[in-house]
């Protein structure tokens, strides 16, 4: 159970920004400052922090969607930063992502079936007929119907679109799914549906999640372990139980106290 499936070692990433009059000066912003995390097989690791803490940069660096300055990402023993493009593409099949905005992350000109099946096509999985069957299966698994495959994204509500995004990520039978604020744009009732769906899919397909969120109440319900980030640095990490009941760092304590509706102790 406790095998590490995905690991980041000492990641550093600095953004350079033009500043000052006419942009003559440059400022460096450390988005990731010596960040190391470990994701255990079959579990959920939550990355929490406020805007600008570097949590989304971490997600993109893990997937090699963005180059980092130094450090390493190891997935099942492979050093991703050293892989060639073609090899990386093979690995990406196992590393998928669910995005935050269900309105912006689906191409409005593609039918749902094409959106969900595109990964299968790119990775050359099966024949046309078997691809269609897989897409239909996956749509039903996330609570949509096979008939929805011929519709366009605008015909769906926010929650349904997020289900499409999840189907797209899971149709390739990945090992790790990185969810970047997957429920923060949704109403609370829809949010509960999606959280439960993610949980049951995890159990069924043996998925490991990296769950990026700013909502500490949601994290409490889905994560096993948690990493607290602040200004590009990891402030504290550990099991969810431990962090919520006895946070060690002042910043974590401050974050937990700021949760709205927390019963005043």
């Amino acid at each position: 159970m406790s095998d590490i499936i995905l690991e980041a070692l000492n990641l550093n990433k600095t953004y350079t920004q033009r500043s000052g009059r006419f942009g003559f000066n440059t400022t460096h912003i450390k988005a990731l400052d010596d960040v190391s995390i470990q994701l255990k097989q079959g579990t959920t690791l939550a990355v929490v922090g406020e805007s600008g803490s570097g949590k989304s940069t971490l997600a993109r660096c893990l997937l090699q969607l963005q180059p980092f300055d130094s450090g390493d990402v190891i997935f099942q023993g492979q050093h991703l930063a050293q892989l060639h493009k073609e090899d990386l593409r093979g690995v990406r099949k196992h590393l998928q992502m669910v995005f935050q905005d269900p309105f912006a992350s689906l191409n409005p000109r593609m039918r749902v079936g094409e959106i969900v099946g595109e990964g299968l096509l790119i990775h050359g999985v099966g024949s046309t007929a078997s691809r269609i069957a897989l897409v239909h299966q996956m749509l039903e698994r996330v609570g949509l119907t096979a008939a929805d495959a011929t519709k366009y994204p605008h015909q769906f509500s926010g929650g349904q679109r997020q289900r499409i995004g999840i189907a797209r990520a899971l149709v390739l039978q990945p090992k790790v799914v990185i969810c970047d604020e997957p429920v923060s744009a949704l109403d609370v009732s829809v949010q509960a549906q999606i959280l439960l769906l993610l949980k049951s899919l995890q159990a069924e397909m043996g998925l490991s999640y990296i769950f990026i969120s700013h909502d500490l109440r949601v994290v409490r319900h889905i994560a096993n372990d948690i990493v607290v980030m602040h200004k590009g640095k990891i402030v504290e990490q550990g099991a969810v139980e431990d962090i919520y009941t006895s946070p060690q760092q002042p910043y974590t304590q401050q974050l937990l106290q700021a949760i709205p509706g927390r019963k005043a102790a």
């Binding site: 509960a192 549906q193 509706g261």
Partner: peptide
Amino acid sequence: KALLACVPDAEGLKTLKPI
């Protein structure tokens, strides 16, 4: 009642139930 049952709590004691 149904809406309150979907709200995750910081203590993690609740079982979430969609509407």
